[in-house]
Design a protein around this nucleic acid. Sequence first.
DNA 1: GGCTTGCCTGGAGTGCACTCCAGGGTTTTA
DNA 2: TAAAACCCTGGAGTGCACTCCAGGCAAGCC
Lengths: 153, 153
Amino acid sequence: METTAEATGTDVCVAPPEREPRRPDGRDNYTISEVVAFTGLTAHTLRWYERIGLMPHVDRSHTGQRRYSNRDLDWLGLVGKLRLTGMPVADMVRYAELVRAGDHTYRERYELLEATRRDVRSRIAELQDTLAVLDRKIDFYGDAGPALASERS
Amino acid sequence: METTAEATGTDVCVAPPEREPRRPDGRDNYTISEVVAFTGLTAHTLRWYERIGLMPHVDRSHTGQRRYSNRDLDWLGLVGKLRLTGMPVADMVRYAELVRAGDHTYRERYELLEATRRDVRSRIAELQDTLAVLDRKIDFYGDAGPALASERS
DNA sequence: GGCTTGCCTGGAGTGCACTCCAGGGTTTTA
DNA sequence: TAAAACCCTGGAGTGCACTCCAGGCAAGCC
């Protein structure tokens, strides 16, 4: 069976969603299931990331099993953050390609990061806007009670 | 042809993404293509929203064409905001159903809104986190220049 | 009257980001 | 040393949110 949190017995009896375990130091060599535990991604997804070129080449054991390095985990951390911004996977792959391509892609990477940052800023602004709408609506519900709860907006 | 911004000639020559036109007042009756212009949604999407129950029943002209009211536009505004938060369409449909069901669903709606607000807050926090990561990375790129631009995280 | 434009419907198709499967090796545990 | 747990691959399948298609009605105008 594939190793997932549900299958390994690490969370018997539907435990509350535990924080991902902290990375032990003094190691530089993790199996895929350890990476699953660290990142919250599934093993499927990790393999898929590699297939589509979103991961630099991951080391293999002598029998062909993946052995992730701390560096790989760092990279996955960044990918995770970028994923939260809604950046399409294709764009992250583009970034990964630039990194692999070497130092002469410096400028392009820089620009990609800045563009992403602008995106994130404007997404935050949008969300704050939405938050304001929700606040008004919730206040309205709270103040008025059921009697006035018919929708106006 | 379907009416979209590209097809109506409202933006000849690849204009910069104009703000959606402000809603004229003194009217309460808009065709689907007007709503497209106001909301930025496509006509397809508007019809689809209706099919899945995300819109209250929209009026029809004597020939069966949709005639949207200001109230419908308000609702679409809310939906648009909620969409930005990443709320699944199914959840918005649920909310729409509660609204249609009448005042006795008041409490449930209130709770749904509050849960959404919590989500939005935590998404904002996540994004701010991501922003911090990007800032650090961009600083690093900026300070170090191409020479140090190999990836460490 | 003919042409263009706008709108209608049900249902099929698309793109994205996974997610799972079959079939088969490897490693750990009892 | 056998069972159980873990990992591998290529390719197919899934769920979501649209997006498009075919075929057709209706209104404006030259």
